[in-house]
């Protein structure tokens, strides 16, 4: 098996694959990320059976933590399979911080946390902020330190879906992208390498100052969200709230008591950016 080791924020991974191509793609896209001596997690891409390695090859995602019914992906989507495997290890195995299924960006030492359903646009918004004067901290997981409440960056590759792919391709000239993967289980997907400052500062934490619940495709509107509703939504957005026990409770109550939260409806990235800037000005 081929091997590639990398570190993303506080977590480190050992990726193993029976195929060279997806690992080479990962090596290229994660070139600026530090290597890992002692990895926290291992992710393996393995042939579903021996013949499948050669005939219509299909890769099963295995690792320290696994979903028994995770469907194998065609090997052309091996890069996506590795990313999914890394996400799974974090979601099921990470205990050092509270994990929120959320994106995050930093400005002036303070962090904006954005969470929402798939399709809410949280990933695209964090990518847009990252090329417009903010430091991108992550598009998938916001990690909250249970001791001091700080947001810990997890700037993995940005996973752009469907229309967001063209929007970002047109947005900036010097962005590096992975291969376009069409018709994956999550639609068309193309990974984007985070801006250089996001990678260079992946150990630099920030205090959360605003929590947003973006929702794409609705007339622009901003709604105050009371702490109890924020709490309830964030427990649903956390993959390890229950596992962290009392620490998780203290971390999450601290977050919702100290940080303002708003629901944000928008129709375009441009509109969302304007509203985010306005709210940041008022509240952060």
């Amino acid at each position: 098996m081929q091997e590639f080791r990398l570190t993303v924020g506080p977590a480190s991974f050992r990726l193993l694959s029976e195929w060279k191509k997806p690992l080479n793609q990962m090596r290229e896209l994660y070139a600026e990320y530090p290597a890992a001596d002692i990895p926290d997690f291992t992710v393996r891409l393995e042939a579903v059976n021996a013949l499948r390695r050669f005939i219509r090859p299909s890769a099963a995602i295995n690792g320290d933590y696994m979903l028994p019914d995770a469907a194998p992906l065609p090997i052309e989507q091996g890069l996506l399979a590795l990313e999914m495997g890394m996400n799974l290890q974090m979601a099921l195995g990470w205990r050092r911080q509270m994990i929120l299924h959320a994106s995050a960006a930093e400005r002036g030492g303070k962090a904006l946390i954005m969470t929402g359903e798939s399709g809410s646009g949280k990933s695209t918004l964090s990518a847009l902020l990252g090329i417009n004067g903010w430091r991108f901290m992550g598009d998938e997981f916001a990690l909250i330190d249970p001791v001091n409440g700080e947001a810990v960056p997890y700037p993995r590759l940005i996973s752009l879906k469907n229309e967001a792919i063209t929007a970002m391709q047109d947005g900036a000239a010097d962005i590096r992208f992975g291969p376009l993967m069409k018709a994956t289980p999550k639609g068309d997907i193309r990974h984007m390498v985070p801006p250089a400052d996001a990678i260079a500062q992946m150990s630099k934490r920030a205090n959360p100052a605003l929590i947003l619940f973006p929702r794409f495709g609705h007339d622009p509107a901003i709604r105050d969200m009371p702490p109890s509703e924020t709490f309830m939504r964030l427990t649903q957005a956390s993959t390890n709230y229950v596992a962290l026990g009392e620490q998780g409770f203290e971390a999450l109550t601290g977050l919702v008591q100290n940080v303002p939260a708003r629901a944000l409806d928008y129709r375009s990235g441009e509109e969302a950016m304007e509203l985010v800037e306005k709210l940041w000005e008022e509240l952060a």
Binding site: P227, S228, F231, E246, F249, E250, T253, Q257
Partner: peptide
């Protein structure tokens, strides 16, 4: 019990069961 009043709701964390009640 850890009791945290938020707004109209109060959170109660029950240490023995690890369950959060709203």
């Amino acid at each position: 019990l850890l009791i945290r009043p938020l707004d109209a709701m109060t959170l109660i964390y029950h240490r023995a069961s690890g369950i959060t009640h709203m």
